[in-house]
């Protein structure tokens, strides 16, 4: 049984727990020592796993019924009294239905609220578009003062949850439904908000991914390597603040960049990376993989990642494309 351990929590059978289960377990352990933490949900205690918090700390657990906007307002008010509210619902409701409450009650007022949104992207594929969420990174990124994180797997989620509790101010973590394959085999990796994890070095192409796409990026990079293509893989778990240094290094070293996210290509990771590249003034071949301004169809999550080319096959195909792509040469490039 592989252990997962943070500073204040330990999980003994991490291999057999989903991303959401680890989240619920970590939050519960943190809540036992940090009495300021309160957990709120909207009739999704079981689905989001925040309900694990309830048995040990019933006084600090609030199930507010199916009313997401109200939950965000209540969380803001609780933060005013010095508590650290952690709220969980599906990503589509947290980021869209309750968007103005997140913006006006939490971010605008600099309230110390943590939103852990589950079932993001197409991880709840069978539920259809109403329950998919391919817009949340874009929405949350635009709120001034919001930290936005998309962990790659369960173990990284554990570290991210711990990190946001320690961080002052509004934070948004998006995770999947919970059946995503693990990326990290143990806890021997760094997690720092705003600092990308380079999982593999490479000089021909850089793949910058977040969330469930990271494991596919590693897979694609290994397959490319076998074909003689050197691919760098960055786990860009923090979308905001984005790791500009890692992006610029990827541009300089590879000049071919692909972003991959379980999200619309408008406004999410790809856009955040594009902003940095555009401001650098450096030319490079660039592709954004994700949902191309369309509503995702019903299906099993793995099938959907494949259809929308954000799995290993899609990434590998795009690596082939960018290798052939032209880009403007930059005279000063060699001097930098």
């Amino acid at each position: 049984m592989a252990k997962a351990q943070g500073l204040t929590w330990t999980i003994s059978d991490a291999d057999h727990m989903t991303q959401a289960e680890i989240y619920g377990e970590v939050l519960t352990q943190i809540g036992k020592t940090n009495k300021k933490v309160v957990a709120l949900t909207t009739d999704l205690a079981k689905s989001t796993k925040i309900g694990k918090f309830q048995p040990d700390m019933p006084d600090r657990f609030f199930n507010l019924g199916i009313a997401e906007a109200n939950m965000m307002g209540i969380a803001s008010g609780m933060a005013e009294t010095g508590l650290i509210p952690v709220v969980s619902t599906f990503a589509v409701f947290a980021s869209l239905r309750a968007a103005e409450f997140v913006r006006t009650d939490i971010c605008y007022q600099q309230r110390n609220v943590k939103i852990i949104a589950t079932h993001s992207g197409t991880s709840f594929g069978q539920a259809g578009t109403t329950h998919h969420c391919t817009e949340d990174l874009s929405v949350m990124r635009t709120f001034a003062g919001m930290t936005v994180i998309a962990p790659a797997d369960a173990r990284e989620t554990g570290k991210a949850v711990e990190a946001v509790i320690e961080r002052d101010g509004p934070c948004y973590i998006r995770i999947g439904r919970g059946f995503e394959p693990p990326l990290y085999k143990d806890m021997d990796f760094e997690f720092e908000i705003g600092k990308a994890n380079q999982l593999k070095d490479g000089t021909d192409v850089a793949v910058i991914a977040c969330g469930p796409c990271v494991v596919h990026a590693v897979d694609a990079a290994q397959q490319a390597e076998a074909q003689g293509v050197s691919v760098r893989v960055l786990n860009m778990h923090t979308i905001k603040p984005i790791d500009e240094e890692a992006i610029l290094a990827a541009v300089m070293d590879t000049r071919r960049v692909i972003t991959v996210e379980d999200h619309s290509v408008i406004g999410g990771l790809g856009s955040a990376v594009a902003d940095v590249i555009a401001a650098s003034g450096k030319g490079c071949a660039f592709r954004k993989l994700g949902y191309q301004d369309e509503y995702s169809i019903v299906g099993y999550p793995d099938d959907l990642l494949h259809k929308y080319k954000i799995d290993a096959d899609g990434i590998l195909e795009t690596i082939g494309e960018v290798l052939k792509a032209d880009f403007e040469e930059d005279e000063d490039w060699e001097d930098e």
Partner: peptide, 21 residues
């Protein structure tokens, strides 16, 4: 104590303050 303006926001926040207290 709270920034308001958009209607229907202050009351949920006030409930949150009362619960937190």
């Amino acid at each position: 104590d709270t920034s308001t303006g958009s209607l229907g926001h202050g009351f949920p926040m006030a409930v949150g303050i009362a619960l937190g207290a």
